[in-house]
Amino acid sequence: MTGHRRYPSDLSDARWKLLEPTLSAWRAERRGNGLDFGRPPEHDLRRIMEAILYVDRTGIPWRYLPHDFPPWETTYGYFAHWQKDGILEKLNGVLRRLIRDREGRDAEPSACVLDAQSVKTSANVPTAGQGIDAGKRIVGRKRHVGVDTVGLLLAVWVTAASVSDNAGGIHLLSAIAAAHPTITKAWADSGYRTKAIEHGATLGIDVEVVQRDPTVKGFRILPRRWIVERTLGWLMQHRRLARDYETHPHRSEAMIHLAMIDLMTRRLTHENTPNWRDP
Results as ranks from 00 to 15, higher is better:
Y7P: 00
Y7C: 01
L11M: 05
L18Y: 05
E20G: 01
T22N: 01
T22M: 05
L23Y: 04
L23M: 08
W26R: 13
R27L: 15
N33A: 12
D36E: 14
R39A: 12
R39I: 09
E42T: 11
L45Y: 07
A51E: 09
A51Q: 11
Y54A: 00
D56V: 09
D56M: 09
G59R: 05
I60G: 14
P61V: 00
R63S: 08
L65G: 03
P66T: 09
P71Y: 04
Y76V: 02
H81V: 04
W82S: 10
D85S: 08
K90L: 11
V94R: 06
L95N: 06
R102Q: 14
D106P: 00
A111F: 02
V113Q: 02
S118G: 10
K120N: 05
N124P: 01
A128W: 09
A128D: 15
A128G: 06
G129Y: 13
G131D: 04
A134S: 15
K136H: 12
I138D: 12
V139E: 14
G140R: 06
K142E: 09
K142P: 03
V145G: 01
V150C: 14
L152W: 14
L154M: 09
V158Q: 09
A160P: 14
V163Y: 06
V163A: 06
D165V: 10
D165C: 10
A167E: 15
G168D: 12
G168H: 06
H171K: 15
L172Y: 04
S174W: 07
A175M: 14
I176S: 11
I176G: 07
A179I: 01
P181V: 10
T184C: 10
A188T: 13
R193E: 13
R193N: 12
K195S: 14
A196Q: 08
H199S: 10
G204R: 01
G204P: 03
V207P: 07
V209C: 08
Q211T: 13
D213K: 09
P214R: 03
G218M: 06
R220V: 13
I221Q: 15
I227F: 13
I227E: 14
L232P: 01
G233K: 07
G233F: 04
L235V: 12
M236G: 10
L241W: 03
A242K: 12
T247Y: 04
H248R: 15
P249E: 11
R251E: 07
R251S: 11
R251G: 02
E253P: 00
A254F: 04
I256D: 00
L258F: 03
A259V: 01
M260F: 13
D262T: 07
D262V: 03
M264L: 11
M264P: 02
M264K: 00
R267H: 08
R267T: 13
L268I: 02
H270L: 05
H270C: 05
H270P: 00
P279F: 01
P279V: 00
